[in-house]
Design a protein around this nucleic acid. Structure first.
Length: 206
DNA sequence: CGCAAGATTATT
DNA sequence: ATAATCTTGCGA
């Protein structure tokens, strides 16, 4: 059984996001993401650093697209990949450094399961729920944005000063593993992918 | 201005 | 394995 932080958890603040991108990526695992009417536990992240990371959009410096990565921490960076999927990132580190965390997986709270959601709801052995309802495991950055209706229109919104877009405390003591990052051809040596162990699919899952 | 590559996903 | 689909950034 998981332990959750106390009710009325505090919103993660600028100091949290301003740290090293790898630390922030790791520490976002198990946190609760609030996105409008949606909320869920973050289960998978990847760190993308700046000029030292060839896989990062910030590698070659600020471009029209990547300049947001060099801005202040705690800001959403949403980009389109392969012409059809959006990806949500959160900018980290002090201004001018160019880095961000890709949100790759989450357990979305589903209080009124219906239709196609029903067949995908996770059941036995899964994370317990905050409110007694179900979780939908969104494993993949494109799936998250599709389900939560996150688009490039949200590029630049702040997680620090909105009442309906923010991240709070979640699991008290999450088990986290690291692997190399997914879907990239450069920077494959860095183990900057973080996964909540309890969310890893096993043969016992349905 | 043309073009290749891309932090993905669903399907075969 | 591969198609789908279009933006971005680079080089000419």
């Amino acid at each position: 059984m998981h332990k959750y932080s106390a009710p009325n958890p505090t919103k993660l603040d600028r100091k949290f996001y301003e740290r090293s991108v790898v630390e922030v990526a790791r520490d976002l695992i198990g946190k609760q993401l609030i996105w409008g009417a949606h909320s869920g536990i973050i289960t998978e992240t990847e760190a993308y650093s700046g000029c030292d990371d060839p896989a990062s959009h910030a590698f070659k410096g600020a471009t029209p697209r990547s300049s947001i990565m060099f801005g202040p921490a705690g800001i959403a960076y949403v980009y389109l990949i392969y012409g059809m999927y959006n990806c949500l990132n959160i900018i980290t580190q002090p201004e001018g450094q160019g880095s961000g965390v890709l949100i790759r997986g989450m357990k979305l709270s589903v209080s009124q399961p219906s239709g196609s959601d029903l067949s995908q709801l996770n059941r036995a052995g899964d994370l317990p729920n905050l409110d007694g309802s179900g979780y939908l495991h969104l494993n993949g950055p494109g799936k998250i944005c599709r389900h939560l209706n996150i688009t490039r229109e949200h590029n630049g919104i702040s997680f620090l000063d909105h009442t309906d877009y923010y991240i709070t405390e979640g699991l008290l003591d999450p088990n986290i593993t690291t692997t190399t990052r997914i879907g990239i051809t450069k920077g494959t040596d860095k183990h900057w992918r973080f996964v909540l162990v309890e969310s890893i699919k096993t043969s016992l899952d349905k």
